[in-house]
Design a protein around this nucleic acid. Structure first.
Lengths: 335, 335
DNA sequence: AGCGTCTCTGTTAACGCTAACAAAAATTGG
DNA sequence: CCAATTTTTGTTAGCGTTAACAGAGACGCT
């Protein structure tokens, strides 16, 4: 159906040169006379010529596309990451192809990766926060540039990650500094590395203050599960401080506490994680930890590009430190 | 650098057939002997062969990729839409390439579309909620399959859209039915069609109840702007019911009302739009309008695919009706 | 002038696939 | 069993680009 646009030879004919010269102009090859370059550019503009990415990809063996594999791009974290990744990639002249997967199991991930590979993407970014994803990656062709985000720290794969441990430690310490005797934790799903890291950080902060960590309450990132945990926390008189693994969990906790008439922050302090834009408008405004998604995106892309260019697949690692954002949901405990 | 994987001829050699037969097996061509088909499949599996999308795209003139142009994929609506679109596309064997743009102006949109075109995408979905986007689309090559989502209803372009008017009318009517004398509105940015439609629906509901609409208060989708509007609403004793253009605005309003000691829903009822997963955990749980993003995604993709297959570019239109979700943020006014 | 050395441009051959046609093999009907 | 048909397979020619090499001028040096 489609009326195919002009090809390189058409431009060449109009400019009175060979198609190869056009190619050189397009790729910024140095040895082209200024006058020729201008003629070619004029011809390109006149015809509205657009280079054919498929042909280029065929001959070079690589397209200017980066594949991203992610689960649940509706969550704030992944969505932000994806958006930032796309922005950064666009600046480098790369398009981003998304392969979202329903489950982060072997088969789904492999299938998504396969799809990307058959399009000959230049590289792949896997937002792979769970254990099972790691295995799928190990059996990947070794020559495909790959970066994982928030993936398994124990695997020999290039990894960019938010420093979950440091963030959780800061959150917990912030509560301890306010005078709380201990801090409870509503965690994310325990097969997510993010969750594990945040649990670790929380535990570390308590231990180095000489405190015995209470059992963490497992949630699943959703406000709904936060609410369920909150209902239990509200019934426990000794609880004065809660650190939740993300802001949505915190929202659910806040709501449960409110229902039970437990005042935040006067009776119970709450700290979240992620700093979703709405966190400042929770009741009360939520103290939380803000990961720098832009920085993560930039770091991953840079790591990926350096692999693409160099052809080496070194197992680098980069960690982005998050920042605590203090708001009104934390106060000293009532005595 | 990359060790190129096996090509079709390698498979053919191993299976003892010509590469064309392999191609036929791959494309499900009927006239292949069962026995041959099996031999070829075995060879494909043995070599781990993966068809080269670029080569296919080159010769057919179309890749199995759909380009999506969207702004701010961090917002809940666009993010959900994108995720749903990707899911649906994957089921049809298409990959989705995102081109997010910072601003929805001419130049940005055109640039994103250009990028997609040079990759020879099979079709383009534009999530183009603002006026300026429409213009950019008119000058697009006519032979590119195109669908707009939440775009300009007055342009002759295939369009899938949530029925903003009906949703807003339902929300407003719900408040009137509860006994409120009038309903105030915190709108989205007025250059978004979504906002305009929601304002329209709200106004229609009031007018057909014989009421004079109060001036709408302009917000920008964010909780922050909802908060600012809420601070004004809280000071106006006659306000008993507010319909906000999305849930985040509602959150800001709820927070402002809470700060001023105005009880929701006893003094003021609030209704939002979008039904973000957290809305059920606001304080109080938010009555809102739920657009069916999956349905929108399915409809858009179907529309796009039919254009791709038929080659015709008809200007269809499809409207998805949203549903009211009643929760606790609405009550009859105090008398 | 003659010759090597740059700079610039052109020619040719892939890249891996599908489409169109050609040939071979299998099937059918008489 | 042979011709006519149908099914199955093979051959060839691109698709639009880049890479590799080759050629043509321009320039500087002996």
């Amino acid at each position: 159906m489609a009326v195919h646009g002009p090809a390189m030879t058409d431009v060449a004919r109009l400019a009175g040169v060979s198609h190869q010269t056009v190619s050189r102009v397009l790729n910024g090859h140095p040895n082209v006379r200024e006058q020729t370059r201008l003629r070619v550019r004029a011809a390109i503009a006149e015809l509205g010529y657009r280079p054919n990415g498929a042909a280029r990809a065929l001959v070079t063996g690589r397209s200017q596309v980066i594949g991203v594999v992610a689960q649940n791009t509706t969550l704030y974290g992944p969505a932000s990451l994806l958006a930032a990744l796309e922005q950064t990639a666009a600046e480098e002249g790369f398009a981003v192809s998304v392969g979202s997967v329903r489950n982060l199991d072997h088969r789904s991930i492999s299938a998504a990766v396969e799809r990307h590979l058959s399009h000959r993407v230049a590289g792949i970014v896997v937002i792979a926060p769970v254990e099972s994803a790691g295995e799928a990656l190990e059996r990947l062709p070794k020559d495909v540039p790959l970066v994982t985000v928030d993936g398994d720290p124990s695997r020999p794969v290039p990894l960019v990650t938010v420093d979950q441990v440091a963030g959780a430690r800061a959150a917990t310490q912030h509560l301890l500094d306010a005078g709380h005797r201990t801090v409870w934790h509503v965690s994310g799903p325990t097969d997510w590395f993010d969750s594990v890291g945040r649990i670790d950080g929380w535990r570390q902060a308590l231990l180095s203050a000489g405190l015995e960590p209470p059992p963490p309450m497992p949630g699943d990132w959703s406000a709904a599960s936060g609410y369920r945990c909150g209902q239990m926390l509200a019934r426990m008189p000794e609880v004065t401080a809660v650190f939740t693994a993300n802001d949505h969990l915190a929202l659910g906790v806040l709501r449960a506490l409110h229902e039970f008439g437990r005042q935040v922050p006067h009776e119970i302090s709450v700290v979240g994680f992620d700093d979703v834009p709405e966190a400042a408008y929770f009741i009360p405004p939520l103290t939380t930890v803000r990961p720098d998604f832009d920085a993560v995106a930039r770091a991953s892309l840079q790591m990926l590009l350096s692999q693409i260019e160099s052809g080496t697949g070194g197992a680098l690692r980069q960690t982005i430190a998050p920042a605590l954002v203090a708001r009104e949901s934390v106060a000293p405990p009532r005595r």
